[in-house]
Design a protein around this nucleic acid. Structure first.
Lengths: 112, 112
DNA sequence: TTGACATATATCCGAATGGTTATACGATAT
DNA sequence: ATATCGTATAACCATTCGGATATATGTCAA
């Protein structure tokens, strides 16, 4: 429960539909400012800024200030962490299947 | 924002550290009852039951009643949905990289 | 049949969450 | 210089969330 924190932040940030939609948009279209990111949604600008802050603190997006605009872009690094977690779970699960297989052909050569 | 619901439920369920830990445990050890699943945590039995309900409603675990016990097990199907979502985002991102590459060698053959 | 077990549900509570409006402030445009 | 734009932050509110305790119900053991 210690440095699971980062993973928890990533999962939490990504769990919200609005934030996921923003990530998808950034992935497809690249760098966008806050006003552009607002457009698809029927919520206030401060609400969008709040979502962006959460994404940024979770390391899922980067921010670049240019003049009076703040340009955000996706950072896929942390998505890799999630993928890794899932892979780990899948791996355990596969091992269970393998173990079951071994059990069924018990006393048979346990090759591959 | 319509049938994103299922994905949202999956992400939300998986975002909680306690629930993730339970999933990992089930993946490694297979079917376990509520009492067993409680052991590693310093929280009440009803709290555990609540977590299990959320995991079950998100389709991440199955429940099998045997006598007075409820046996839970992981169901990895929905993890695939998450993986797919991430892959999709990665794909968009890769396309951006490709487009950038094409731009840099502009007027060069755009082969592979 | 009676008490202990296994577990779900109901109710309540404080903290976190997502949203709103108001406001501040630097960057631009006029 | 001044108004407007782009955006963050503050303060507030309703809802949701994770947990606690109390309780109900079915199953098993004595």
């Amino acid at each position: 429960m210690k440095r699971d924190d980062q993973l928890a932040d990533t999962f939490t940030a990504i769990a919200d539909p609005t934030r996921r939609a923003m990530l998808v948009r950034l992935a497809r279209e690249g760098e966008r400012n806050v006003t552009q990111l607002m457009e698809p949604f029927a919520i206030s600008q401060p609400a969008i800024s709040k979502h962006l802050r959460i994404l940024r603190e979770a390391g899922l997006v980067s921010r670049r200030k240019v003049g009076r605009e703040n340009l955000y872009d996706i950072d896929v690094t942390r998505l890799g962490n999630i993928r890794d977690w899932i892979s780990q779970v899948d791996e355990y699960w596969d091992q269970r299947l393998d173990a079951l297989g071994d059990y069924l052909n018990k006393k048979k050569p346990k090759k591959k």
